[in-house]
Simulated assay, not measured.
Amino acid sequence: MLLMDTNESRETVLLSSASVHPALAPTTIGPLSLRNRLAVAPMSRVSTLGDGFATARMRDYYASFARGGFGLVVTEGTYTDLAHSQAYGRQPGIATDAQAEAWAPIVRAVHEQGTAIVLQLMHAGALSQENGYRPASIGPSAVVPRGTKMSDYGGAGAYALPRAMTEEDIAEVVEGFARAAVRARKAGFDGVEIHGANGYLLDQFLTTYTNQRTDRWGGAVENRIRLTAEVVAASVRAAGAGFVVGVRVSQTKVNDLAYRWPGGSRDAAIVFEELRAAGADYVHLASEGADAAETARFADGGNVLEVARRVTGRPVIANGGLAEPSRLARLFREEQADLVALGRAALANPDWPLRLARGADFERFDRAMLHPFASLENAEQWRSRTALSSPR
């Protein structure tokens, strides 16, 4: 019999106990050993001072999820270069060594709680939410994005017309991701997640109506996924062995919830084969606020989660409306995914894994939590919503 002397040791056992719930079973991603299959989804909090430097408030925010028992934390989207990648005025960056160093205390605070942390690398492309702090936006083609900018992130009105990218622009983007991956490793992160989802630059290349190119970057799906695959491969090479490089993809977008890959299961198989060949350690499937079951289905009867697991042979993280414990258990029993990333449920319950392990009730999600409460104006309100009591 295992004898435990402290509440902390009891919690540690509970957080990796598959007998309590299959989500609490330990798992691995590449060289990473995780205490359970629960991840914090990347959520933009726009909480820097405007200089791209991670802050003490961000350290407290991410550490709260680690104290709450999550096996993996995926950070908010972080810009990779100083030219065109930034999306929001207060977005964090890792475009310089100094910005990378500012992340180190956050990584240490998360690691101290036994949780792994992956930095999400993001390039906005045409989805810039503000004007005036960087040059005009770029994209695969000179096509105005659908929808309007997001006011919570400083945006207003229609998106600007982006400049169609040149071969030099594309090479600079790839290099920017690779250099950011190297900086992330030096800052202590366990890996990076390439943000190829939700309508941002890499997804703009994959999306048919934003990519009207006729060169090797456009047309067939093999060409449209090429940039994401090259970014993954370059990041794998640059960061070196023993460092996780994952990739997040989606059909839906922040500015278009209706879009689906036109080739259904066939397109998905090609997308995932290219990402596997590029060396991705995992695939994270985003649902952009929608139910994962809804966005996973193709008109041809296929399922994006099934295709991703079958084609890549890599761990698959599912995201979107999966926080109901019985539904979550069924997903793992049926081997639909290897991990689940929680967003809204994690905001409402930074200690969600501990509550699951204890059989405790969960706090209800309040839509107001979607606003980036970690921002300066709302720091105290955010802090009160994410405060954790000591484990009992």
Rank of each mutant, 00 (worst) to 15 (best):
257 L>Y: 06
288 E>L: 09
105 P>L: 10
149 K>Y: 10
373 F>A: 10
335 E>P: 00
135 P>L: 08
299 A>N: 04
124 A>C: 11
340 V>G: 01
246 G>H: 04
107 V>R: 03
149 K>M: 15
372 P>R: 08
81 D>P: 07
197 A>G: 12
150 M>I: 15
290 A>Y: 07
303 N>D: 15
75 T>P: 04
265 S>T: 12
185 R>Q: 04
37 R>Y: 03
325 P>T: 08
198 N>D: 15
325 P>C: 08
179 R>M: 14
204 Q>W: 04
115 T>R: 04
15 L>K: 05
47 S>E: 11
146 R>G: 14
383 R>D: 13
165 M>T: 02
380 E>K: 07
34 L>W: 03
304 V>S: 02
357 A>E: 01
271 V>Q: 00
351 D>H: 10
74 V>I: 15
1 M>P: 09
314 R>H: 04
307 V>S: 00
31 P>K: 09
152 D>E: 14
276 R>G: 03
346 A>N: 09
174 V>T: 11
338 D>P: 00
270 I>C: 04
365 F>Y: 14
129 Q>K: 06
232 V>W: 01
147 G>T: 13
115 T>C: 10
239 A>C: 08
187 A>F: 03
323 A>E: 13
254 V>C: 07
317 I>V: 15
375 S>K: 11
300 D>S: 02
121 L>E: 03
357 A>R: 03
